[in-house]
Each structure stands twice: as C-alpha cells, then as structure tokens.
C-alpha cells in the first residue's frame, strides 16, 4: 500500500426523506478544515434514489466534488448495497480519510466497510485533526463510559475512517452558487445479490427514558418538601426529554418508586447532564452520579455539599428557578428547531 496514491477527504452523505441529514453538513464543515490543512480536495459520497440534485447543495456547504450513486436499488439504506457502492468508489478513487455521522446508518455502514477494506475505524469521535505533512488523522473520542478521552490513530492503513457524533462539528455557512465536480458512478450490485429487504419504515416519537440509559437526568431530593413539590422534577424532565432521578430519602418517603433512586443503594448513572435539585449531596448519592459529564445543582442551602460535586451550582429556590427555565427552554428550543429546518 503506497500512501501517496491516497488523497482527498471524503464525507459519507446520509440522506433521509430526500434531504441531507444535518450531521453530514457538519462533517463537510469539519472535513473542509482537514482538507485545507492537507491542501487536498473535500468530497461527498452521495448514495440514494433521486439524490443527484442534492450535489449542488453539498457544494454550497464546502464539497469540492460529489460522487453519486443514484439508483432505485439505494431507495432505502441497506448495508450490503451501500457498502458495495462505497467500497468500489473507495477502491477506484482512493481517499485518505472517510468520515461518517455516528448515526445508526453511519455506524452500520462504516463498520462493514472497515472490515472489507480492511482498515481502522474510530467510533464516535468528537475531535478531529490531521497531521499536515503525513496526513495522519487524529480522531479523539470519549472512552470507557466517558471516563477518559483517547486519541486514536491508524498509521498503516488507508483510508483512515471515523464516525463522528452529531452536533459536535459545525457546518459552514452555505456559499450560494458555489459549484464543484460531479462524478456519477454505478456499482456492480444487483437486487438479487442483496439478502435483506426493507419491508416497512415506522416513525414514532419518544417514549419514557430508562434512568440508566438516559442522557439527561433530573433528580430531586427532600428539599422539594413534598410529593407534590416533586412534581417539579417530573415537569423539568419531561421538558428536557430526560429521566427522573431521586435521592434515597425521597424514595423512602414514597414520593417516587425505587427504580428512580440514584446512589449506593440505587442505580449508578452517567448521563451527559445531571440535575440535582433539592439534594443535599450525601456521599451515598454522590457515588451514584459523580461520573456524569455535566452536573448542575440547585439548592437553597449555600453550604450543601452537593455544590462540591457539581460543575454549576445555583443557590436559590427551585420553585422559582425551574419554572422559569422550563418556559425559557421551550421558547429557545422551538427556535432551534426552526433554525434547523
């Protein structure tokens, strides 16, 4: 394998309901930086049915070239068909880096492609960089349940591949009228070669989040005063799409059921955001949540030990602050959604 044969930064473009998903645009933004650093081209690989027109959109977001596989066979994502297209494209044009969104489609595809090439694949990266002279991709990611960050290298194989978490990278501001090269390709796969069929796609909205899997946990303690006061916790959790947690004394008081209990005798949790509201911060509780990525404490007692274990603390009345937050969050978030559409 001669590394000189490999050049260009590629982004797998994921299409959903005829539109490019946001993470693909974010990756074009990230990929552009890598490509500029290497003085090479940024390309998108676009696979789907009736997707060719999307190439123009991708140029505006930074792609210099777009490889297109447009065929009815790609109507729905299937590992075998998409993998085959990407593999053939890869073998023909030899990129040095391929980035994928860490979505169920992106991860599925990347894993299969990496095995067949074969090459190294770094999952769920959150930081990307590249060595200017060698082209070595430095993909960093949280590991061991977020306990450490690790930088992963793939020194001996090309292309280097990584899946990247959505919403971490920034898409470029689109440049209207920007154009690029379109390379139309056809893969050698036929419907009969594919062993899976998509029978149906069902969309549905979120359901209740399990506390040990939740990204967001809103936990309340005795400071909320009563079972009816604890309703505040449910309200905030619902607004944020998180799970409800509780300290031991709240569970013992019967305000919520035991499976909500966080701590030594309850569940150990490691969400991305942990709210501790009206929780004093006994060690039994702390051991169950201290590895959360972001801990926010609200307590009326400035001496509460929970503040020692929090990233952000608010001394104040939860019954004043939380309703305000719920209101503001709903407003702000609706705005966000509009921005994205």
């Amino acid at each position: 394998m001669s590394f000189e044969d490999y050049s260009g930064i590629w982004v797998f473009i994921e299409v959903k309901d005829g539109e490019v998903v946001p993470v693909s645009l974010e990756l074009l933004g990230a990929g552009k930086e890598l490509a500029d650093k290497r003085g090479t081209e940024l390309a998108g690989v676009l696979i789907g049915e009736n997707v060719t027109h999307l190439a123009d959109y991708l140029y505006e977001y930074g792609a210099d070239a777009v490889y297109v596989y447009d065929d009815v066979i790609y109507k729905n994502y299937r590992t075998e068909s998409y993998m085959k297209a990407l593999l053939e494209c890869c073998q023909k044009y030899k990129p040095e880096v391929i980035l994928y969104g860490a979505t169920s489609t992106g991860k599925d595809l990347a894993s299969a492609v990496a095995t067949d090439l074969p090459t190294g694949l770094t999952a769920d990266s959150t930081i990307l960089d590249i060595e200017e002279d060698t082209g070595l991709l430095l993909a960093s990611r949280p590991a061991f349940g977020g306990n450490i960050m690790a930088t992963i290298l793939c020194k001996k194989y090309r292309p280097q591949m990584a899946t990247v978490r959505p919403k971490v990278m920034k898409a470029l501001t689109p440049e209207p009228g920007r154009t690029g090269r379109l390379i139309e390709e056809t893969a050698s796969i036929k419907e009969d070669d594919i062993r899976t069929k998509v029978l149906e796609i069902v969309q549905h909205t979120t359901k209740k989040v399990r506390i040990d899997e939740a990204d967001i946990i809103v936990a309340g303690g005795k400071g909320l005063g009563s079972a009816s006061g604890f309703q505040l916790i449910h309200d905030l959790a619902e607004t944020l799409g998180g799970a409800v947690g509780a300290s031991r004394d709240v569970v013992e008081a019967g305000w919520v059921e035991h499976h909500h209990q966080v701590g030594q005798t309850g569940v150990t949790v490691t969400p991305k955001i942990y709210f501790a509201i009206g929780i004093s911060g006994a060690i039994q509780h702390i051991v169950g949540m201290q590895n959360s990525s972001l801990i926010i404490a609200i307590n009326s007692d400035p001496a509460a030990s929970i503040f020692q274990s929090s990233h952000y603390g608010i001394v104040g009345d939860a019954f004043e602050i939380v309703p305000l937050l719920i209101e503001q969050f709903k407003q702000a978030f609706n705005q966000e959604v509009i921005d994205h559409v």
């Binding site: 770094t122 690790a150 992963i152 290298l153 793939c154 020194k155």
Partner: peptide, 8 residues
C-alpha cells in the same frame, strides 16, 4: 490498524 496514541 488502530492504536491509541494519547489518553487524557
């Protein structure tokens, strides 16, 4: 193919 070069 992959190696861990740095952890923090």
């Amino acid at each position: 193919p992959t190696i861990v070069s740095k952890v923090w």
